[in-house]
Structures are given as C-alpha cells and as structure tokens.
Design a protein around this nucleic acid. Sequence first.
DNA 1: ATTATCTATAGATCTATAGATAATGC
DNA 2: ATTATCTATAGATCTATAGATAATGC
Lengths: 214, 214
Amino acid sequence: MPVYMTEQQNAQRDTEALILQAAEKEFLEKGYSGAKTTTIAEAAGVTHAMFHYYFRTKDKLFEKIVADKLGKLMEMMFSAIGNSDLPLKERIVQGVERHFDFVAANPLLPRFIFNEVHNRPERLDGIKNNMISMATSLLDNLQSAIDKDASINKCRHADARMVLLDIISLNIFPFVAQPIVNVLLDSIDGNSGSLLEMRKKENVKTILEKLNIE
Amino acid sequence: MPVYMTEQQNAQRDTEALILQAAEKEFLEKGYSGAKTTTIAEAAGVTHAMFHYYFRTKDKLFEKIVADKLGKLMEMMFSAIGNSDLPLKERIVQGVERHFDFVAANPLLPRFIFNEVHNRPERLDGIKNNMISMATSLLDNLQSAIDKDASINKCRHADARMVLLDIISLNIFPFVAQPIVNVLLDSIDGNSGSLLEMRKKENVKTILEKLNIE
DNA sequence: ATTATCTATAGATCTATAGATAATGC
DNA sequence: ATTATCTATAGATCTATAGATAATGC
C-alpha cells in the first residue's frame, strides 16, 4: 500500500468498505434471499449503482462473505479445543470460555452458517479437507490428554469428539435462540442481562462434571 | 364433517391440503423470503392461481404455518422436562430421549424458529404468557424433584432451568448443524449413519453425569 | 485519460387478480 | 347457482446495466 493515497483512492476504499460492511450485516441478518442490494446500498449511504460498480453482482459479493464466514467457522470450532500444553482442567476451562467469547463476539455467525450449509451443503466441499485435517490433529491431541488423565483416575474417560460437540452445542444455543431463551428465563426471575454470563459458567461446569474433573 | 362428501368437496380438500403441505416444506426449507409462491404451487401440482384462491396471500399462509410451528416449539421445549411421577433418573432419561426423538421427527423446526424469532421477535409476544406459565409450573416441579433427591445425596444439586437448556442445546445441535457435523465425524471414522444414535445416548449420559446420577 | 459517481431504465422475477370456463349439486 | 379451476396479465419489486457527468492525476 502506498504511503500517500490520493483523494480518489481514499474515496474508493471508503465506498467499497462501506458497501462491504453494510452487505455483511444485511446478509448475516437476513440471508441471501432476504437481503436486497438496494437496502445494502442505502445502508451504506451510496447509490445503488455503486453496489454493482464495486462488486458486479449480488452473488459475487455473497460468495465473498460466505468464504470469509466459513473461515470464521473453522476458527470457532477449533477455538474450543484449547491449548495443548496446559493441564487438562485449565485447557477445558479456557477452551470453553474462549469458544463462548468467540460466539458472543460473532452472535449472528452460527445461524448464518446453519442456513447456508443447509441451502447449499456442497459449499463445505471446499473447506472439507482443511477441516478434517485440522480436526483430526487437534482431536487426537485432546484425546491423548483425556486418556492420559483417565488412566491415572484424574478424569472420567470420554470421546474427545463428543466433548467438542458438547462444548459447541452448549455455547451456541443461547445465542441462536436468544429471543426464546430470554422469554423463558427473563420472566421467571429478573436476571436477563446476566443470562449469558450465567450460561458461560454453567457450560464450563457441565463439561468439567462430564469429565469428572474436580 | 358430513359422512358423504361430494367429489367437489374431495377435490377442494385435496388441493388445499396439497398446497398447504408444499408450502410448509418450502417455508421450512427456505424461510419466508426464500420461498416462492410459484414454486409452492408447482410442488403441489396445481396452477399458481390456486395458491391465491385458497390462501389469498403468501403472508396469510406463512402466518398460519408460523402459528402452527410456534405451537410445536412449545411441545418441543417441554417434552424435555418429562413425566413428574417417575423417579428422577427415569424421568431424565425419558425426557432427553423423548425430546431428541421429537427433534429428529421435526429436524427443520429449530432452524425455522430461530430465523423467524430473529427476524420478528414480536411474534413471541402472542405465546409469551402461555410459555411462561407452562415453563414455570413444569420447571418448579422438576426443581422440586432435583432438590428432593439432592437432599438425600441421590443427585447433585442443579438449577432446573439450566438442565432444560442443556438438554435442548445438546439435542438440537446435531440437527441444525448436520452437514458440518457429518463432515467432521464422518471422515474421522466411518460411522455417519450412527452419529445421531450415538449422540442421543451421549446426551442422556451427559445430563446424568451433570446431575451425578448413577 | 482514468476512475468514481449519478440518473434513468431495461429486464427478470414474483405476487396477486381479473375474467373466462368447467364441474357439481340443487 | 356455486365452487373450483385455468389462462392471461397487471403491478410491484429487485437486479443489473447503459450512458452521461464529475473529479483527479498525468
């Protein structure tokens, strides 16, 4: 990137970035068919023609965003497995919490991905191999750690893949079902704001109890 | 309903039912904006005009289906809490399994509901009070059962609301994320067909271990 | 001369309805 | 006479592009 940028280049980057941001929000909120290019342009504060000038078609921009979000999906899945040189308990605690925080920072991501892979499962083909190789090595490593601790009765034996699924399931649900969960818990007692904090701690506890780690 | 129905009445019911079935499938698969009335009519094997003849507008039919599915949502949530006159362990086992089976029988329901309540959270207003009163009484009852067993050390103390969230989270995830979960587990070993069966047993186990019930 | 932006509009898609025709029951 | 069905099309919405105009750098 040149040190000095012309006004024009500045303007170009702004417009492009504004459209991209608006599109990302619109697509994550409403999905491909619910999102409208006119709405995106309006939200970005530019004329509709600019949308096509910078990104040609709705499809192309959507593909770009999907690719980006599939990358984030991988991050999200494997952030839960945690750092391998920590004792198992700390590794689990950190893994669950880091994963929870990741979802909290990207609360629209799971629903978007669920819809997208349901509508077009073949999209996963591109990242399949990458996913599998990452998963295999990370899960093997976690499995060894569990087996090792289980052999000296420091934890209950468990399938690492199931533990990973447990963590993801528990952490994602309160975000994708937030309006429902709020109705349910909110009105039973008044602590709505703290629900997510509560759930984060509870999920750590659930996994530790599953593994019978004190 | 009259015992003898005319041909015309038969025909009417068939067409109406065919459109309704096709619409339900289309809406659950693609959501409101992704579903097209032309596609629904085609799938039902009737002309497009029939769609409007029987249901007037896309909106009206969609509202009908949403109302129906919100009813199913309540069923789904509370099937997990189980029967109150069973011992706690059996109650948990039956509750988790019944809930899992319900989701398995309605695999598209959760994603549809998640999208719908996200797009229009005010939709929950109508069933809010009903939900809260059902939840309160069922959860109070479950909480008593847990407290009772916990007081004689037959289980670990736990918040019934958290247990309900745990069950729903764990059971729903493999269905809404099925394509991803399949990639992940399928290729690590070859037991894809049995993943759901495996997960069902695992979820029962997880909840029992959380409650420390032998 | 090149790049960015705008206005205007073409063209596709989708929802909805008008109006004619066929089928059935009284 | 009433109800169900069809064809044809209006009208709205949305994506995309054409072509003119403005701004910037060479």
